[in-house]
Design a protein around this nucleic acid. Structure first.
Lengths: 356, 356
DNA sequence: CTGTTAGCGCATTCAG
DNA sequence: CTGAATGCGCTAACAG
């Protein structure tokens, strides 16, 4: 006992349980017991320990705690693309809330655009011993997750190469609803803009086609526009091109929120140039802020994105705790149409292109 | 290509360095050396070790690694309010990118609305041994962070009770620019809508006042509207009230992106009701998506939000690594006006007229 | 009830 | 150059 106080542990080192134990004049185990609920400790002793904890400002080291085998860490990982997309931001926020309520933190892996980036990020996260992974998967194969020993929940779209829980929206139904809505108003030539072929987009297209078939209307394949990128810019360009055709569509279905923005941007430009021969109806997929405040409020097929995040987190938490041992689940959230105006324009709405 | 997680490996136990060592027929230390750069290991031995690592799909346990004294963990914490606000989402994304490039993960603490929630979240994060904290602070006292033993960088606004690095925008300058712009066009009665008194809002107001003083125009205190909440709804209500006054302002400065939305919403309603005696000029603070596509494109004072996040992460990384030992820094990013139309309306613009 | 002990997976001494 | 030994802070199992 050369030193009463551990000299080095003065300012920059956080106190440990041993410090607390010494301070309270008890053993290490007792401190641990008090910290973890205090069962089986005499009240008086517990008081002393708690006092020492307070005085020292002790805080349990979660990292060391998680090192014990069996004891899973209390953090989940969330892997997604662009937080700047309100769609992903909603998922992040919602899952964060649910996780937080159960005392879990959420680690966000940095995800580059490249396909390998996601894999690297995921492995990074796994090496951090997270208790589970929520992944909005990119297109690559995710078989490498099979033996990861960590529960995985995919969000928004399934991944190939692995059978895991998946929480998503009814993309096909949404695509169908959008097309049905337009067809019901007499539109026969409906363009559909597709972001690079993610799973979701394929399903939306399928619903789109199905509605056409049910209505006995043929889909003009030249109006099924596959974009090189899922950006507003790409959609803007494509819209300009398609609307300048002699046989321009009377309606446009934009398969994502960003694409809808691009469509509207293009229409605005054409309109201002007096080159819009007719005003097409527009329906977007996924709601977005200010959609109702644009010159023509935008009709969209929407779903409860926050619920997507919440469900994913809840499911993952149950898997991580071992509470839920069912086979992989498949949760599908419904879509609904929100009519605002842009999607209710009848075919042949007057444009402003000067004759000739 | 080797599988990272061999499917036949035990589901529940990830291989450890000891497994690798046994497999390669070497000692634990050797494996460690190979994993960490492989200096001072004979090439042949290193090969054997690497082979074993591949075969076993070994991945270093970051948690255990971080347990060693001195060795800080490789994760940063980010504490902020509402990821659903594009402003915060941008910060998150940008800081995430920078951190990721240095091999750091970012942990998001769940932050409730209540003031105590933030403190709890921060302590949670600290107990997880993060190497540093990025905090968009709430109003409470943050003195409790003094002895946390972790570097802290505040983002967007400083915190009271602690002197730490801070990265923010030039709020006062922004407020000044907005007011100057409106005053230059002859506006004399400019309303300013204020979200609950965060630091930033106070500075924006100060700049607003300063511009008035410089222009020799008195600020009508009844037009300085302190809102109970920072929501679009609150701004909408306040705008409705102020615009229905006999002495309605000829211009409105909305001090946040959400408030600008509320202002526009209110004006839209009043307009449609034929109750807008005159069309006020509107300037917002912080740019937002679709601002340029609204019926009247919105003029805003904007700054590089992503750079806010990047700077914060860079600074924190340098602090965490000990590279940067300067006294607390104060990084201030400039604001600039983006003229789009709503802010260029002269005083006395006729109301109740459909936008052309 | 309470103190002591043995690791968790890894980096780092210290010997050889 | 390499293997063995020592904790990091904590929990769980085992004595007293």
């Amino acid at each position: 006992m050369s030193e009463t106080f551990p000299s080095k542990a003065a300012e920059h080192a956080r106190p440990t349980m041993i410090d607390v134990a010494r301070r309270a004049g008890v053993g290490l185990g007792t401190v641990s017991r008090v910290v973890n609920g205090g069962h089986g400790v005499r009240d008086e002793t517990a008081q002393r320990v708690r006092a020492a904890i307070d005085e020292l400002g002790f805080q349990r080291n979660e990292v060391a705690r998680a090192l014990r085998p069996g004891k899973k860490s209390t953090s989940l990982a969330l892997v997604l693309g662009d937080l700047t997309n309100p769609f992903y931001a909603s998922i992040a926020k919602a899952s964060l809330e649910v996780a937080g309520q159960s005392g879990y933190a959420v680690v966000l892996g940095s995800v580059d655009e490249d396909p390998e980036g996601e894999k690297r990020a995921i492995q990074e996260l796994v090496s951090r011993q997270v208790a589970g992974l929520m992944i909005v998967p990119d297109q690559g194969d995710h078989a490498f997750l099979e033996g990861a020993g960590v529960p995985v929940v995919f969000v928004d779209r399934p991944a190939t190469g692995i059978d895991a829980d998946i929480v998503m929206v009814d993309n096909e139904g949404g695509g169908r609803i959008a097309a049905e809505h337009l067809l019901a108003q007499g539109h026969q030539r409906i363009a559909i803009l597709l972001a690079p072929s993610y799973y979701t987009i394929g399903r939306r297209l399928r619903g789109f086609r199905r509605a056409h078939r049910a209505a006995g209307v043929d889909v003009d394949e030249s109006l099924v526009v596959q974009l090189p990128e899922g950006t507003a810019e790409a959609a803007e360009k494509a819209t300009r091109e398609v609307m300048l055709r002699a046989d321009a569509p009377t309606a446009i279905f934009a398969s994502t929120n960003f694409l809808a923005e691009g469509v509207l941007r293009a229409l605005g430009v054409l309109r201002s140039l007096g080159e819009l021969s007719q005003e097409p109806a527009v329906v977007g997929f996924d709601d977005f802020r200010l959609a109702d405040m644009l010159p023509t409020p935008v009709t969209v097929v929407a779903s409860d994105i926050a619920e997507l995040g919440r469900s994913a987190a809840r499911l993952l938490l149950d898997r991580a705790s071992g509470t839920d041992t069912r086979p992989p689940q498949r949760i599908v959230l419904p879509c609904a149409l929100i009519e605002r105006g842009s999607g209710e324009r009848p075919p042949g709405s007057a444009g402003n292109r000067t004759a000739g």
